[in-house]
Design a protein around this nucleic acid. Structure first.
Lengths: 148, 148
DNA sequence: TTGCGTTGCGTACAATTGTACGCATATCAT
DNA sequence: ATGATATGCGTACAATTGTACGCAACGCAA
């Protein structure tokens, strides 16, 4: 069977809003999203419907309002999305993207510190480990696995 | 003026191949790309045509073969693409993406070293981020060249 | 020279994506 | 009550994207 359908850019945007504010009505998502970019209420509605269709959200009627809830964790979707991009744009290696992000000046001074801490952790957790045996401190996540 | 049209995922893939191997015939791009993923020769042809239409490539006939050349630097396209993703997925801040990439275990140990170096450079070149807060710490590093 | 494979090029077409209309209700303020 | 407003829901439709067919011309091997 087909693997879970990927989200389009627009859908991603809505999904993000949904993650952000938790279970919400169309209007709430609309308010949040339209603050940043020009979008129609009905369009948001459609996106949410499609999000549900694709299995990324669920909804229930509460009175006459439909409440949408995210059904998947952001991490999973983000991973898939980013992986796909990395695949197409860099043939699969993440490093070039990291490099790009860092060199492109999108990282603030303050964030550099955090970043350093991050790689410190990473380094210590990876020492003398076999490839694939990486363990990330803090988040008990399942290891990456070959998909498709 | 009209903002340059974004590239679709498929187009990005082809663009990457084009950057990779430089000016090339359809077949060359096809060979390169089809090694990784299943794609039709004619499809590659179409992508290249569209790439040219959108202004990302140019081409000329050499004998009876059409040679395509990338017209834009990868950096620019990558930046636009990544920026867009970051916008939609993280509301504009790049850090969450960096964090994701690092925590998701896609960075090898060797790359960590490089990453650290990158950060060092960044830190020293960013010291005058906001006015009046000049506090230089590092030795003279090669300044980051402001590209566009 | 006769095929056969290759490429250019025009064209096609289904799926997906972005965007939204319109109607039937339901609700709220007056 | 009544009209203005909001929402659900079905439906629509153009643009973009992914994928490819088919033909004509070209060049190489037999």
């Amino acid at each position: 069977m087909k693997k879970s359908q990927a989200l389009s850019k627009g859908e991603l945007e809505i999904a993000r809003a949904l993650w952000d504010i938790g279970p919400a009505t169309v209007r709430q998502i609309y308010d949040q999203t339209s603050a940043t970019r020009d979008i129609d209420f009905a369009t948001v509605q459609t996106y949410l419907r499609r999000l549900e269709l694709k299995g990324y959200a669920s909804s229930k009627l509460a009175g006459r309002l439909r409440i949408y809830s995210a059904k998947t964790k952001p991490q999973a979707v983000i991973r898939d999305t980013v992986d796909d991009l990395v695949q197409r744009l860099f043939g699969g290696s993440a490093m070039p993207l990291v490099r790009h992000l860092i060199e492109d000046g999108d990282i603030s001074r303050q964030e550099i510190a955090e970043l350093r801490k991050l790689i410190d952790d990473l380094e210590s957790s990876k020492t003398d480990d076999f490839p694939g045996a990486a363990k990330v401190s803090g988040g008990g996540k399942s290891p990456k696995e070959p998909k498709s």
